[in-house]
Design a protein around this nucleic acid. Structure first.
Lengths: 313, 313
DNA sequence: TATCCTTACGGAATTCGTAAGCATG
DNA sequence: CATGCTTACGAATTCCGTAAGGATA
């Protein structure tokens, strides 16, 4: 048993059982991958993959049992290497952040700029993905830090920490009827066509909940994954976006109305894989992004057992 | 990085940093071990071991950080192999039990006999060790199952399950003054020299507690680690042993008096390493030994997170 | 001086990549 | 017939064990 074999198995699953593709990713020849998988199977005495003729098509029962172990070992190997780099005092390294458009576009730029300045040698990798994929990237080790508002809690394998709270606001074109100074209500919003986030994105759930609780039906004309798109189409009606997405100087043609009293407060969370070894620059980045998350706070959460951390902060 | 290197590191720590010894244990030459350790250190860019001249003397700070990762990987590798054996339907394998004298001598024989009959191909390894070492052997992977009355709870890395409850009894030579039929009390016991288990063994704590709570001082003339020794010396006074240790047909010269009402009930526990892959014959053995511990009960406990299991059962 | 680790070197074993073969959709 | 896995084989690499060297208690 060796790590190369384990990597081949892991990558075979990730790449949909296409060994040719696996070979490319692992920078080796395809027969080598075939051999590695076959030899591991021989050593274990069991087939891990289902074969249709000569083609791999899926995992066997044993395969599904065994895969978590394989991934554990490879993640630990990564941790080991990272611990080495850390103590060797190497200033180079990787910081891979998985996050949503909202965060990447509005919340992260300052922290990223500071980080780049302080750690120029660290390769910074910003993965902009849908919220529900953030957890997966963390669990697979492809990302070191995940930041999202949705779909981060309730993973045993993740440690989740509260970053900051925010509310939605309503953006309308200049001269819109809602700018008459009268108080903003759900009923008044519902009089207009609404443009906001797709479901699962950026607090969309809280928006639906508020209207549903009030028993008000809305005319949803367009949903999008990010505030920039939403703002582009605001002339079609009114837009509901995260407050941080409105910038008076940039969005000159638009006006914003605070809607913090209409929709539930959102909590953006940061997550890391439980038990991961984090380079000290990762701790620094986290603190830059969310100052209350000091190194010892994160370290303690990281070492904690599942269930011990608070759901909210 | 490869597993041979990791094994060398683990064994170096276990063998007190004597690489010559490590080489013997791992069936290779001593220079090979030297190289493996050095190459791993080079790859990580950090020294894991403290060197006094050419001799290894301990772990560096990095070393202590890194060792848990190394052990994780090696334990997972064991799990992987075992999962393979299991699904390959091999009837051979290993069952390594770490337990105390009391259990090995009185509680386990029946279960062991049945097991041997049912799984003749499985090499059964019975480690008789002091209670406080049972947990260590489980955590290191040297033992698969631990059985003891003391010092098994409160390990995060172990899953502990209640097996059975038992009480102490008093053994005296035939014709002893205590055999007058009058009720047995702590005060009456204290009139005689007492022989019982050493501290930390077989419910000794409950014996001390009972006398201490009653404010009675006792004359402890001899302590031993096992009931056989205690019984041998009973003529020097009276012995307090586990009830299961008294066998009327074998211990003809002795009489036993139930002392269940004098000392707290003891709970013997069985433990396995959390997350370990257990062969099905291991589940069978556990159920044979403690019938309430059926396969699904154990499997569920095994997969549980720390803190979720009851302290007592 | 005995023990223990390192270095050096030749040989064994493993592992790799290329090329050819074969099955599947 | 294009894609994808396996087999075969020579080459390169890695890894090991023996033998010799040096440091420490």
């Amino acid at each position: 048993m060796n790590f190369q074999q384990l990597r081949a198995v892991r990558e075979a699953i990730r790449r949909g059982y296409n060994l040719t593709e696996v070979a490319k990713v692992l920078h080796t020849s395809q027969p080598a991958i075939s051999r590695q998988i076959r030899e591991l199977e021989e050593e274990l005495g069991v087939e891990l993959f289902v074969r249709a003729g000569k083609r791999l098509t899926g995992l066997t029962e044993v395969g599904t049992v065994v895969v978590p172990l394989v991934e554990n070992m490879l993640l630990d190997a990564d941790n080991l290497r990272r611990a080495g780099e850390e103590y060797a005092g190497r200033d180079s390294g990787r910081l891979s952040i998985a996050t949503t458009h909202s965060q990447a576009r509005y919340a992260l730029p300052d922290a990223v700029r500071d980080f780049r300045q302080r750690y120029p040698q660290v390769v910074l990798n910003l993965h902009q993905i849908p919220p529900h994929q953030v957890a997966e990237m963390l669990l697979s080790g492809e990302a070191d830090v995940g930041i999202a508002t949705e779909a981060l809690a309730s993973y045993e394998g993740l440690v989740t920490l509260p970053c900051y709270r925010w509310t939605h606001c309503v953006v309308v074109p200049q001269g819109h009827a809602l700018l008459d100074g009268a108080p903003l209500t759900l009923a008044r919003l519902a009089e207009h066509p609404i443009i906001t986030y797709g479901s699962g994105y950026t607090g969309r759930l809280h928006i639906d909940d508020a209207f549903a609780a009030a028993g008000i039906a809305i005319d949803l004309v367009l949903t999008a994954m990010d505030a920039d798109v939403i703002k582009t189409y605001v002339e079609l009606g009114l837009g509901i976006v995260a407050s941080i997405a409105y910038d008076p100087s940039r969005d000159r043609g638009l006006a914003a109305l605070d809607a913090g009293h209409l929709f539930a407060v959102n909590l953006t969370r940061l997550a890391v894989r439980r038990g991961a070894f984090l380079r000290s620059y990762v701790f620094d980045f986290i603190e830059t992004f969310a100052p209350p998350l000091k190194r010892d706070v994160v370290a303690q959460a990281l070492a904690s057992e599942p269930g011990t951390q608070p759901a909210e902060g």
